[in-house]
Simulated assay, not measured.
Amino acid sequence: MAQYIYEYKNWPEFTWDEGQISVILGKVRHLQGKVFGQMSGLGFLLKEETMLSTLTLDVLKSSEIEGEILNYEQVRSSIARRLGLEYAGIVHVDKNVEGVVEMMLDATQRYASPLDHERIFGWHAALFPTGWSGMHRIDAGRYRDGEMQVVSGPMGREKVHFQAPSPKVVRDEMDAFLAWFNQVSNIDGVLKAAIAHFWFIIIHPFDDGNGRIARAMSDLLLARSEESSQRFYSLSNQILSEKKMYYQTLQKVQHSSGDITEWLDWFLNCLYRALVNTEETLKRVLQKADFWNEHKETVLNSRQRLMLNKLLDGFDGKLKSSKWAKITKCSADTALRDIKDLIEKGILQQEESGGRSTHYELIPRWNTP
């Protein structure tokens, strides 16, 4: 079996090819500046809306990478409440959702605060409020005291992807990691986010939740690199869409003797693509703003406003009157009246696909995929 990176004498002295990394790092830095420039031109409410959408996406996708699907409305509502933002859809929020949101906001809104053992324990405890991960009891809020392997495959034919350092050295490893994390160095902040992500994953200090905490650390360092708690792009969303390469690259570089160029190259390119995709999100936010600006004098009831916001945010599935009634908690007749009123006002139209049941959509001008 090939040696792991932490088994080499020079661990944790990482090296990389500056020439290979500098071009993509320059592109990332340029695009970061461009995105922030575009955002600073937005009005206050639009900025809030973009940030709320981005943080919601980040929380949802970081959990989805681990196979956990959280409820969109709960995540969005929890973030809005904690940031003191206006949000119509205040809903009941599960404990585990509150925990993930708490960790993400602590990382991004308090990016300038030092990271220490206690703060990380707080994140971990927030991720596992019941002390259980699925069917397994775990040590929430403290480092693992058992061996840790990342495995896949059926019982008896498991494939070991990674063997983490012994639990005996975890505290010392984390001491060294945190000392580096908090010190002011001449390493570019974006590069530091990539190194921290990899280093923490290798230590694998917890029974579970290491991936989500590593991504929160990256978000913290990216916020630090921008000197801003305002989040306008989601790295986790991009990692999810490139999940296979994410794990493949980690698996390959974990056997390196210290050179992590391949990991840094992948991370920076992934971040670059996340920034490119942000322009799409911005387009939707601007469109939503234009819509409400145009309809500021239009008489609409609270049910119609709620459903229009859902449609403008990208409604999942087909909109039928029965769905309208269920979401807005009204009768079928009221739902149909609401919809017909919006058709008369030139906001909704009946979908042309026909079929046995009638579906509705925003008129083409507002209906971007």
Rank of each mutant, 00 (worst) to 15 (best):
G346E: 13
A80N: 10
E66D: 11
E86M: 06
F315P: 01
N186D: 15
S228Q: 00
W132I: 11
K323C: 06
L300G: 06
Q109S: 10
A274G: 03
E227L: 04
S257E: 14
E227R: 13
V285G: 01
I120W: 05
H204A: 07
L42Q: 06
D290Q: 15
P369T: 13
E48F: 03
D17M: 05
Q254D: 11
M51V: 06
V169C: 00
S166Y: 06
F291K: 01
K288D: 06
F200E: 10
L336T: 08
A196S: 14
H255D: 00
E102Q: 12
L115D: 02
L25E: 04
K252Y: 15
V150Q: 14
M135P: 13
L300S: 06
Q350D: 00
W16N: 03
E242L: 01
L45K: 15
D175T: 12
W266Y: 15
S77E: 08
F206T: 08
R231K: 09
N367R: 11
D175W: 09
M1Y: 11
S229L: 08
D259F: 01
V190L: 12
W263R: 09
S78R: 09
T278D: 10
I187Y: 08
G346H: 09
S40I: 13
S53Q: 14
V28E: 05
S234W: 02
D333Q: 14
S256G: 01
N301S: 02
Q74C: 08
V169K: 08
A223N: 04
W292K: 01
A193W: 03
S225K: 01
G99F: 08
R284C: 01
D338R: 03
H295S: 04
Y6D: 03
A164V: 02
M245D: 15
R157P: 01
L105R: 06
L319C: 02
D116H: 09
H255T: 08
I202R: 10
V276K: 15
H359R: 07
L240W: 04
Q230S: 12
G258P: 04
